[in-house]
Each structure stands twice: as C-alpha cells, then as structure tokens.
Design a binder for these strands. Sequence first.
DNA 1: CTGAAAGCGCTTACAG
DNA 2: CTGAAAGCGCTTACAG
Lengths: 345, 345
Amino acid sequence: VRVAASRKNRAPGIADVARLAGVSITTVSRVLNDPEQVSERRRAVVLASIEQLGYRPNEAARALVSGRQKMVGVLTGNTTRYGFSTTIHGIEEAARRRNMLVSITVVESEDPAHIRSAVDLVLSQPLTGVVGLEFDRVVSLALAQLPPTMPAVAASLTGTNASGLPRAYIDDELGARLATEHLLDLGHATVHHLSADYPTPSGHGRTYGYQQALRERGARVPPILPTGWNPLEARRAALEHVDDDVTALFCFNDEVAMGAMSALRERGRRVPEDVSVVGFDDTPLSSVWHPALTTVRIDFEALGRTTFDLLRSMIVGGDDVASATELPPALVVRGSTAPPRGGGA
Amino acid sequence: VRVAASRKNRAPGIADVARLAGVSITTVSRVLNDPEQVSERRRAVVLASIEQLGYRPNEAARALVSGRQKMVGVLTGNTTRYGFSTTIHGIEEAARRRNMLVSITVVESEDPAHIRSAVDLVLSQPLTGVVGLEFDRVVSLALAQLPPTMPAVAASLTGTNASGLPRAYIDDELGARLATEHLLDLGHATVHHLSADYPTPSGHGRTYGYQQALRERGARVPPILPTGWNPLEARRAALEHVDDDVTALFCFNDEVAMGAMSALRERGRRVPEDVSVVGFDDTPLSSVWHPALTTVRIDFEALGRTTFDLLRSMIVGGDDVASATELPPALVVRGSTAPPRGGGA
DNA sequence: CTGAAAGCGCTTACAG
DNA sequence: CTGAAAGCGCTTACAG
C-alpha cells in the first residue's frame, strides 16, 4: 500500500498539510504567515494537521519566493580567538532569538582568490544580510566585494572600519588611553606598547589612544614593539624587544600579555615589582593568572548582539538607523601593575 | 530606459545569462553542472556571459530542486570554549574546501523547549547534513530528535556518544590513562581528579580511564572532586575540595588546571614541588603558563575535519563508511609535574 | 474569510 | 550537442 502523502522520502510539504486538513495550500500558508486572516475553526484544523504530520516549512522554497533566507552570514578572519569567537556567539544568540540561522565563512588571507571564494560562498545563499567582523584588513577587503544590494554591517574596532559600512564598534582607542593613563598615574615615566601585527589596522585605535595619552602627559613616545597574535609569538617578541629599561608594558591583548610575562620571568624581571603589565580584553583566564592581570574589559558578546540588531533595523526598520554604535571599555585593575621601583607618583 | 535584464533589484539569474549568451536556460545550467556535455564554443560564450553579468547561481533554488542545500549544520552546546571553537573551525575549513557553507546552532540547555527550537532551526533549512558536537548531553538530546532521513554524524569523546550516530571521537579515556600513569610513574601514591560537571557524561571517558589506570597499578581510587567549566569555578572548587594530602592532581582540562593552580598558590602550595598538576587539551596558553603545564594534547581541528569527512562519505560514498574514527591524544610533559616531596619512584 | 493560479530560479528527464 | 517543459515547495496578488 502506498501512503498518499509520501513523495519518496521527502519531508511532508505544505500540500500534504492542505490535503489532510481539507483546505487549500493558500490557507495553510496563511496560517503560517498571517494567522489572523484565517477563521478560527480552519486555523485549528490546519495546526492539528501540521502537528500530526510534523510539518516544517521549507526555508529554501520561502527564500526562493522572497529572495531572502532567514539566515545571516558572518564573514570573519578567524573563529577561535577570544574576541572573534565571543562576538560570533553574541551574533548567534541574537539571531537565534529571531529564529534566524547564522552561517560562518572564514576569509583565509588577503589573497584575492581567498577573498573571492569567501564572497562567492556568502553570496551563494540568498542571505538576509551579512555581518563582517571587521577587526582586520582581510574582512574589509571581502566586505568591499559585496554588492550594494546585500545589506551588510560591520563589528569593528575604532580604527578598522575601512569598508565604511554601518557598524558597532569597541572604542579600543579609549581603552588604550585608560590603560596608559593608569600606568602613568602609577608613576611610570613612560609606557611601552607590544602591538600585534603592527602596523596593520588591527591595533590602530589602540596604538593611537596609547600614543595620544603619552603625548598629552608629556611623556616620551617610544617606538612600537611588534609581535604576532599568539602567546608564544608574544613571548618571543618580548624576549627580543623588551629592554631592561622598560618599566611599564601595555599589551595588544591578554594572550600577548601572558606571553610577555612568560618572557619577563625568563629574563628574571618580576611583575609588577620590576615591570607593570596591562592586557586587553579581560579573558576568563586573566583573573587566575599570576599575578592577576590588570586589563581592559571588552564586551564582545554585546558587540555581536548590537551589530546583529543594527543589521536587523537596517532591513526592517529603515528609518533612523544609527550608522555607528560605540561600546565603551573599562579598566580592570588587578595585580600586574604597581608603581615603578624607586618611587611612584 | 529600462534595462532588459533587470528584474527590480534582484541579482542576475540564469535566464539573464541565457539571453545574453543566446542559448537556452538548460544549456547554461549544463555549463554549470556538467560542462563536458556542452560544446566548447557555446561553453565559452556562456562563461563569458556569466562573467560579464557577475552571475552567481541561487543556492536556494538549487536546494529546492535537489532537496539539499550546500550547507552543513553544526549543533553544539557552546561556541566559545577551546575544544568547541577549535572543532568548529576544523569543520568550517573542511566544508569550505568543498564549497559548502556551515551554519551554527547552539542548544542552550536540556530544557525541551530549547532542544526543540534548536532542532526546528536546523531543520528549517534543507541541509546536506548535520554535525553534532556531542561532548555533552544537550547535543545528544537534540541529535535524537533529528528525523532519520537527515544525514547526521557526531564529533565526540569516548563516553559521550549517547546518540549512537556514526562518529569521530577523541580517545580521552586513553588520554586520562596517560596522564594518570605519568603521575604514578613519578612516584605519587595516588592521583586525584578534578572533573567538570561530574557526573554528567562530558568527562566519563576521562574519569573511567583515570580510575582504570589507578586500579591497574593497585593505587587507591579517591572520590572525584567536582568543578564547573571555567577557571574561576575551578579555582573555587580547588579551594574547597583539594586537601593538603593531595600530591598529584589530574584536571578535566587546561583551564580547570589553571584555576586549580591559582587556588594551590593561594593555599601556599607550590607546583610542582608540593603538588603536581596535569591538564587536558594543550591550549595555546599552557606553554606560557608558569610553571608550564603538563597536559594531554588533543587535536580538535582534526576532529572537526574528520567528522566532516565522515558525513561526506555517508552522503556521497555510501559503501564502506567507518562508523567510528578514533583520534589519539598525546601526553606533553612540561614543568607542572615532578616526583612527590620526600622521594619519587 | 477562502482558493486558483502565477511565479520565485533553478535542474532534469524527455525528445530531437 | 541542444532546448521546451515540468516541477521543486512555497508566497502573493487577484478574484470572489
């Protein structure tokens, strides 16, 4: 015996529901999209049929009609590092609350072929919109390739909005200023800066805020000390570049700070007695690190949520969409900073 | 003047390409899906038209016809913690190589409403298949709700495959055994275990391997010390549960180990002189931690890639699909372990 | 409040 | 090697 409703192994479709409920396909569609329009009696019958069949609307078909999927695409240079993964989590959470799916596409490098293939992948789906994690140049390049018809926003830092898209961003320039002023307030003559990927845009805001704070206080502005992203690279960079006259070190982020502290320890320099160290981000480990890390707290979850909301208001709202939302950082003073030896402020 | 090809603001479609190239829609489709079938001359014309128009096939339409999107769904309990985010990265990388998109859906809790809504979200798209990060019970519950028609595989640990799906998994039971034996070999009378979420399934394999190793060596098997996932919880748990007679501590993962070491330090107990500590995972920070952390290296990237490959061979291959692939861990000895005070082996 | 019909952008037998 | 036509599962004017 053949079951009437079964078309091979396909999941039940709207036609199956209509047949079982004894109504037209149009009515089933209305129950799904604008229930008020359907009489209470029919609505109940349709809902019961949906339940009985375990029917779920096929989003691909919906997308074909509407030209838009219930899905936002995330374009990012990385998925695992703290700031990236936490921002993605914020986006995912906000999207889920709106019943939207999130797709992830990584842009591997600035190689045009990588840019191109990431953009192709994103555009292969009729997404509702795109959120770019514009923390560095790769994503800016990819965002620039998006057609203007595709709604797009960026989650970024102060100085990394090369795409010019509407954005939410961490005011990391302010964060750097807070960190630097904290160290100067402790009595350090000046502050050195270990910056990842300098001089790429990733740390522009931080570098600028740091240098501005030094200038305003009339402190000497030392050359930037370059490092890579991960703790081991930071360790190597610190071994190479952090001289013995450094008494205060402001680091690109917490992981870099931890790598640097490993190097300082190897050099026999104590933190904070000989050198004060400040991180950036306030990762979960910074408070169990020894000494507990003074750092700048960043709310990446909120960045993700805010950016998603921005995209959403661009698409549905239309009217007064803020073109930029700023998220403030906060200084968290712990054990890795102290006045310099031989007297502070 | 109206441009012929423009249907409102829609992106160019296959019909636009066909018109420009002076061929049928069928021919354009063939150039895309089975180029051999089209004469070289026409193929060239079609490709030129595609290029000129910037045409990209609409995956939603393709999905509607084929019943399958070029997209795999990831079902996970978390997106930010080390093992999770690294595994997701492995999946994303493998998928991108196959020109497939990855969607992320988080199962918030074991609450049936959360399970249900995560499953609904996943099934709303005609995905090629689903990869569940079956590291704990939430995802097992969600995977169990998937209809049998949806191809699904799991990335898991030794003891967390409650779904019974084909899987790739970390042999964390072996990892725990290696860690425990290392500590016994150093001369410790026994080893204590700080386990996250004990006795949920997350750490079953680890707990079992650890206890087996103790039993085989005739060492006393102490009660499990429970902790939460993050470093601060681990710190609190260690302050509460790690007594002064503990000389060797095997921890659920590196972050738990770091939290525990913070607690030991506060208690005035030195690592490794007074207490040896072993972590699990080998996160990037474990080598810059002080003392550098002895741990068990896990290749979560490979886990992600392998699981994706498994899904793929289930879908395309069909024949001899391995129902389980095991990924071996490796002990990495660093500075946090040493013989006990008063003589080792 | 309800339904028949057109159409979203593709793929795929089928016929030549 | 090529094309006309049906159909994937929905939504949305349009007509009643």
